[in-house]
Structure formats: structure tokens, C-alpha cells
Design a protein around this nucleic acid. Structure first.
Lengths: 194, 194
DNA sequence: GAAGTAACAATAGTCAATATCTGTTACTTG
DNA sequence: CAAGTAACAGATATTGACTATTGTTACTTC
């Protein structure tokens, strides 16, 4: 059931967040929007930050969707898939910060404190990159000593273009051509050695 | 003359900054420390932010010193020099954020607003990397279509480990081994193609 | 004329009283 | 028993009067 009370609270929270920004939305406001007392919200979420974390997590799942699609597209060669995956990650973040700055601020405020939600998200990102890399190894594109290490390295190298703190700094105005040349060199470097 | 009134004001500003942090140092405090009226400080610096910018710039020049040394060390091969240069950049930033958090906060507040000072600093960084790359091209280590583009790419890729916003986020606790493997792959990638 | 000052308007910061919000508990209601 | 509430203490914001700071100007002083 998609319209559980939990989901309705989350929807209302997103609504408030979008309208008034993260600084000015409290659990009282969310409760008022749903015509209930704020104490009832606490029946479903342990705390305000737990509520916000849940919003951020749901948002992150949406962000992941197009990436997962690329990862699963086994018929295109791994190097090309890797480039597309990284480009899409950067594009998605950039799009979000431009289209929906309020929500991006929430995401930013969640990532600022090194939360468990973010750790899980990063773990998922590493997993996806690892899967593409593994496919590349099987197909003979690369021979890596550490898949996991290489995946982390790729995310580190491209973070300039997808880390929220960076995307926010240059207001989504980073040059994706520069990311393109970066991933080209990395893919080339991987093909040569581990 | 190193003890011009301008320098003495800058020294006093650094002193105040270090003692009381950037939020609580005003030009009146600086003036008081020098036994002069605050209006006289304005004879030498157009505004408080101009004063702080000058402090940040002087600090950035100090940061650059060990890098410039590496760049000038023409007898070691370019690839090795490039790796050492990037590692040193990250180390220097990491050291500063750990040893001197007050000053790092000043630097951070300066970099936050996209200031001219930072633009100049980045331009200098690009110049240094470009010089090493050019040496590598001459020695036959690489053949690059765009030296400048490659330099920017290298700084982008390593920004995770030296950009103030990132260094501050993980409190200088980033793993320099990961940077090592990153530069290895990039250098390998450059050797293969442009 | 380079270094300095006093006096000033406008802005930004402080501080304490007040109001609002967070999170808990004990208690309905269908 | 899942969904809901009222009443509450403690932490957090907001407000408004007050104070300090920023930056300018007109005026010394050596």
C-alpha cells in the first residue's frame, strides 16, 4: 500500500520542505498540514532528523534509478557503460540542484552530518561501479587487482562533479566536458594496469 | 622592506584571527592590537573583506612554496614529479586543516564566496601542473592534445583530496593511499592517449 | 603626502524576555 | 492495537531594545 500513514507524512514533509525550505519546516508544520497533532508524527518517526533522513533516503532511491538501469544493461560494453554511468550521476545531481534547490538543501544538510543514510548510499554507488568493473574484467577490458578499490577511486576522481558540496558550490555550472575527459583518461589508465 | 605598515597590519590580523577566530575579529580589534584607530587601517585596506582576502592570499602563497619547489625540480622525471606534486598539495591542505583550524576557517570563508583571490590561486595551480606536463611531453612521457585541459583534469580528479570544502568535511581524515592509486591510474591513462 | 585621528551614519551583533518547537508521557478512541 | 490526542519540560527560535562595528569624511601632524 503506497498510501500508508508513513508515506502520507513523508509526502507532507516533502511538500513543506519544498515550500519553506529545511530551516523553516518543523514537525508541527508537517502535522498541521495533515490536520493532526505533532505528537502523532512521533508515533511514526523517532525524531525530526529521522523524518528528514527518511525523506533524503527516498530521494536518493529516485536518484539511483537511472544508474541502476545503466548498470543492468549488460549488452553494452563495460567501458562505455562506466562512462555513461558516471556522466549520468553528475547530470542527475546537477539537474536536482538546478530544478529543486530546496530539496537539494535538505539532501545537503543530511550529507553534512556523516549520516548512516549517506553511508548506505555511497555503499550502493560503490556496488554499482564494482559490478560494471567486474563485467569489464570478465570481458577482458581490464585486469584489476582490487575491484572495490578501483570503484572507490572512480567515485573519488569524479566527486568534483557529483558530490553535493561541490555541485552546490558552483551551482550546477560545472563543465561536463571536463568530466568526460576525466573519465576517458581513467578508463584508459585502467585498461593499461590494475 | 618586510615590516611595512601593511605587513604589520596583516601580521596583527593573523594574530587576532588565530586567537579569536574569523567571526570575532574586527578591524577595531586589529587596530587596538597595533595601538591605532580603526580608521587608519582603512587607509591601507579598502574594507574588512579586502583585509581578510590579503591574509588568505599570503597564506596561499605559503601553501604554494613546497609545490613550486617540486615543479622546479627538473631532474626528476615528470610522471614522478606529478605524483609528488599532487600528493604534496593534498598533504599541505590536510596538515593546515589539522594544525591551524582557525586559519583554515578564514581560508574557507574566503573560498566560499567565489573570490578573485581563489581564481588567481587556481590559475597558479594549473600553471604549475601544466609546466610539469610540458616537461613530460618534451621527455616523451606523454603526448597530450591540450596541456591546459589535462592540467585542469588532474586538479579536478584530485579535488576530493585537496579542495577545502572536501578536506573540511572529512576533517583531514581522507586516505592518501586512495589518492595515490588515483594518480597512478591517471598517469597511466595520460601515457596511453591524450 | 604618508600616517594618523575624531566624529559620524548606517549596518551588524548582542542579550534577555518571549514564543515556538521538540520529544515524552499518560491517556482516548475505533 | 494502530492511530490519535492533550499536557508538559526542556531545548531552540524570534523579537526588540541596546551596543558595537563598518566604512566615510573632514581634519591633524610630521
Amino acid at each position: 500500500m503506497s498510501n500508508s500513514i508513513r508515506d502520507r507524512i513523508l509526502d507532507a514533509t516533502v511538500e513543506q520542505l519544498r515550500r519553506h525550505g529545511p530551516a523553516k519546516t518543523g514537525v508541527v508544520d508537517v502535522a498541521r498540514a495533515l490536520d493532526m497533532s505533532h505528537s502523532n508524527v512521533y508515533k511514526h518517526f523517532a525524531s525530526k532528523s529521522a523524518l528528514f533522513d527518511a525523506v533524503a533516503e527516498r530521494w536518493l532511491v529516485q536518484v539511483m534509478a537511472p544508474l541502476t538501469k545503466i548498470t543492468a544493461d549488460k549488452k553494452t560494453p563495460a567501458p562505455k557503460r562506466l562512462k555513461a554511468w558516471v556522466r549520468t550521476l553528475a547530470e542527475v545531481k546537477r539537474k536536482k540542484v538546478l530544478d529543486d534547490p530546496e530539496m537539494f538543501a535538505v539532501y545537503g544538510s543530511v550529507t553534512a552530518d556523516a549520516h548512516e543514510v549517506v553511508a548506505r548510499h555511497i555503499a550502493r554507488l560503490i556496488d554499482e561501479v564494482s559490478e560494471i568493473l567486474r563485467d569489464g574484467v570478465k570481458a577482458g577490458d581490464w585486469s584489476l587487482k582490487s575491484i572495490d578499490g578501483a570503484a572507490k577511486m572512480i567515485l573519488n576522481a569524479s566527486s568534483r562533479f557529483h558530490h553535493p558540496a561541490m555541485v552546490q558550490l558552483d551551482g550546477g555550472g560545472s563543465d561536463l566536458k571536463e568530466l568526460e575527459s576525466l573519465t576517458d583518461v581513467i578508463v584508459a589508465g585502467l585498461q593499461v594496469r590494475g
